[in-house]
Amino acid sequence: MSSVYPWIRPRRTRELPAEQRELLRKACRLEWATLILIAATSIMMYVVMGGSKAMQTALVEDVLSLLAPAAFLVAARFQRRPVDQEYLNGHTRAFDITFFIAAVALTGVGLAVVIDAVHTLITASHPVITTVAIGDRAVWQGWLMIGGLLISVIPPVVLGRMKLKIAPRIALKTLHADADTNKADWMTALAGVLGIVGIGFGLWWADSAAALFIACSILKDGVTNLRSAVRDMHDAYPQVVDGSSDDPLVAQLHRAVLALDFVAEAQLRFHEEGNRLSGVVFVSTADDCLTLEQVERVVSACREVSWRVDQVTVTVSGLRAKIARQ
């Protein structure tokens, strides 16, 4: 493509600092561990699940929880690719795209599982848990199901806590969303245990109620992640990784620009690109002029605030705006 459009200039992206590169590699190792361990526990649950609706729904959530780590690993692979004449802005949005795809899939399946759980409650379908022969003894299959669910709690608890520690340090919402999904995994496993215990006490509806609780958890995760993904795709105001508040980095950038001696006022318009922030700085000066040296000082001031700041465009605000060339 470079021979067809020789006048195109690809974007120059900043390389991650050494600490963040190592954290990203650690995050990839955690995601590989998640794929392996959750897949293993899913197979175990499939073998022992029997007729419990709650356990079947918990199995669906475990399988769905493989989407987020798989999407993360795909995005990490794409992000490492260099800028070229086709992808002029690089692959900084790889995490945003895979995050969106995983959120859509999770929301769609969550909605389907909720409908199925409600139908089961309405039709009053009674689950049946039989006995199995182990050696010369007959054992209620519910004990095996409870054991399988309790074992399935361990990997998401451990891995989720480790991901929550890393996600803010590399500013990746995909990783934080995966940690939230891990939290939902172990919570739904415990709900499944209560459903099976309810069956043991003759409460047929306990299993379906637990299944509905799990299904609502799946749908909630999907909708929350989908909303966050859509915000990022629309270049909305940056937020922290858990989406609970606005990203304080933008305010820090504003203070850094105002600290420059030639800046009278400043306004910023930044958006997220993966774990990076890029945007425009509108500067007001005494004479409505900016020298090239001053532009470079504004860019440097922003980039010194955080490794997350990537592309910064500086312009003069005001009706008499102009650039003085030196």
Rank of each mutant, 00 (worst) to 15 (best):
S2W: 04
S3H: 15
Y5H: 14
R11H: 11
R14F: 05
E19S: 10
E19N: 02
E22A: 15
C28E: 15
S42E: 07
I43N: 03
V47H: 09
T57I: 12
L59G: 06
V60G: 07
V63M: 12
L73W: 08
R81S: 10
V83Q: 08
L88W: 02
G90S: 07
A94Q: 06
A94F: 08
A102D: 11
G108S: 08
V128L: 13
D136K: 10
D136M: 04
D136L: 06
V139A: 00
W143K: 01
I146F: 01
P156T: 03
G160V: 06
A171G: 02
L172C: 13
K173P: 02
N182K: 04
K183N: 11
A184Y: 07
W186D: 03
A189P: 03
G192M: 07
I199N: 06
I199F: 00
F201Y: 13
G202S: 11
W204D: 14
W205Q: 13
G222I: 09
R227G: 15
A229W: 04
H234S: 14
V240I: 15
V240K: 07
V241E: 05
G243H: 04
D247A: 09
P248C: 08
V257W: 01
L277G: 01
L277N: 05
C289T: 15
V299M: 10
A301M: 12
R303I: 03
V305W: 04
S306K: 07
R308P: 03
Q311T: 13
V314D: 06
S317L: 04
A321W: 01
I323G: 01
R325G: 00
R325I: 11
